[in-house]
Simulated scan of single mutants.
Amino acid sequence: MTLSALPAGALALALLSHATVSAMPEQPHALTLDVHVHDGTVEIRLIGHSPRAQAVSYALEVTGQSTSRHRGATTLAADTRAVLSTMRTNVGADWCVRLAAEEEGRAPYEITRGPCAAG
């Protein structure tokens, strides 16, 4: 039996069974960095924002003239922007901000800002 001999509903089903369904685009990360440099000082805000409520954990490290670290875990409310951490430090020419983050149901990721991002 050829496809043209099938009833219309069966033909549609046969065609759909061979179609590939493209995956939905991946959502942006729930954790982001807002980094501002002014007069030798860097200010970092760790921002949490997710379309759904979810648990997140993070390790934030800022290196410059000294090293500062902050670790945390929290549950983000759906569609609510929150500042999870603010750090401010004096930096020289070489500074680096590193965020290691984990979200429910996603692979861990890292975000890097500063001159270390180029290296």
Rank of each mutant, 00 (worst) to 15 (best):
M1K: 08
T2W: 14
T2M: 13
T2D: 15
S4V: 13
A5H: 07
L6E: 03
L6H: 02
P7D: 12
A8W: 09
A8D: 09
G9C: 01
L11W: 13
L11M: 14
A14P: 05
L16H: 10
S17H: 12
S17F: 11
H18R: 15
T20D: 07
V21A: 03
S22C: 10
M24A: 05
P25S: 01
E26L: 10
E26F: 08
H29M: 04
T32L: 10
T32Q: 05
T32M: 12
L33D: 02
L33A: 03
D34K: 05
H36Y: 05
V37D: 04
V37Y: 04
H38M: 06
G40T: 00
G40Y: 00
T41Q: 00
R45G: 08
R45S: 09
R45I: 08
I47F: 07
G48Q: 03
H49F: 12
H49Q: 14
P51A: 01
R52E: 07
A53F: 09
A53H: 06
Q54W: 12
V56N: 05
S57I: 00
S57N: 00
Y58N: 00
Y58V: 01
Y58H: 01
A59M: 03
E61I: 12
V62A: 11
Q65Y: 09
S66I: 11
S68G: 15
R69E: 15
R71T: 13
G72S: 07
A73W: 07
A73Y: 03
A73L: 05
A73M: 10
T74V: 12
T75H: 12
L76S: 13
L76W: 02
L76C: 06
L76V: 04
A78Q: 04
D79S: 15
D79I: 06
D79R: 14
T80V: 06
V83I: 11
M87D: 05
M87H: 13
R88H: 06
R88Q: 06
T89F: 09
N90S: 11
N90A: 15
V91A: 13
V91K: 13
A93D: 14
A93N: 13
A93Q: 12
D94L: 09
C96A: 09
C96S: 09
C96E: 08
V97T: 02
V97G: 03
R98A: 15
L99R: 02
A100C: 05
A100P: 07
E102G: 14
E104G: 07
A107L: 15
A107K: 12
A107S: 15
P108C: 01
P108R: 00
Y109V: 02
E110G: 00
I111H: 01
I111Y: 00
T112R: 13
G114H: 01
G114Q: 01
G114F: 06
P115N: 05
A117L: 07
A118T: 11
A118E: 09
